[in-house]
Computed example of a mutant assay.
Amino acid sequence: MSDMIETAKRALGLVDLTNLNEDCTEADITSLTGRTVTDHGSVAAICVWPRFVAQAVRELTGTGVKVATVVNFPTGGIDTASVVAETKQALEDGADEIDLVMPYKAFVEGRKGFVEEQIIRVREVLPEDALLKVILETGEIKDPLLIHAAANVAIAAGADFIKTSTGKVAVNATLEAAEIMLTAIEEARRDDPERVIGFKPAGGIRTAEDAAAYLALADRIMGHNWVSASTFRFGASGLLDALIDTLEGKDSVEGQGY
């Protein structure tokens, strides 16, 4: 149990606490921001729909918790101009981090250049201190070689993080996809040791045991000193409560796991 408590302590500060429910309200956002600073420490960020960014920024002022939002979400469309405009508005509203859904259907169809261009164009409008997390939607890409190729495209186009999933499809984060993506990050690190590229599993991660499995995988591939909030995040809505329950010795109730 002590090992799981240590894992929970480690994982709590890596959580992107998420509400991307279609029926999310301003009251839900206030509830979400109210959970970010706990007796056991703060989460890394919250991740919300673009329409709630300004509210979240106001409510989190002074906490140190970042505000992330999603663009081209959840379907990964191909109207790059709209995605860039959506990104600019989110930044004007105060977003610190942008989680961009890669046009994964176009990628599977072989349109690598188009996908790369969209990521580059979004990257270009981000200030230096804003993070770009690129969502591959690995459960829809499916093929391991294509997942690896998608990770490489995102990294080459300027992603600061690569993220498994939107949480909106049948298959979201898996350890198999995580291993492929972390391997791509490790390969990129060998090519350019100065560049920092992070990893974010999202969708279906609900328990301290789930978190432990992903952290162990990252430790094995990237080394024990690699994981931090600048290199690793969990995209989840229910995980925080499970981690707190573990830290407080309670039985956790599974929540959602975007």
Rank of each mutant, 00 (worst) to 15 (best):
M1W: 12
I5T: 14
L12A: 02
G13Y: 00
T18Q: 09
D23C: 12
T25I: 02
A27V: 12
I29Q: 00
T30H: 15
S31E: 14
S31K: 13
S31C: 15
L32T: 04
T36E: 04
D39E: 13
A44D: 03
I46R: 10
C47D: 03
F52H: 11
L60M: 06
G62M: 01
A68M: 06
T69A: 14
V71W: 01
V71F: 03
P74E: 10
P74K: 10
A81S: 13
E86G: 08
D99Q: 03
D99L: 04
D99W: 01
L100Y: 07
P103S: 05
E109V: 07
G110I: 00
E117G: 06
I120G: 05
P127C: 05
A130E: 07
L131F: 08
L131H: 12
T138Q: 06
E140G: 06
E140N: 10
D143G: 09
H148N: 12
H148E: 15
A151C: 11
V153G: 01
A154L: 02
A154F: 03
A159V: 04
V169S: 13
V171I: 12
L175Q: 14
A178I: 04
L182H: 08
I185Q: 04
A188M: 07
R190V: 15
D192G: 06
A202L: 06
G203L: 00
G203A: 10
G204W: 09
A212Y: 07
A213H: 12
A213Y: 05
A216C: 14
I221M: 05
G223S: 05
N225E: 15
R233Y: 10
R233G: 11
G235C: 13
G238K: 09
L239V: 10
D241F: 11
D245P: 08
D245C: 08
G249L: 07
Q256P: 14
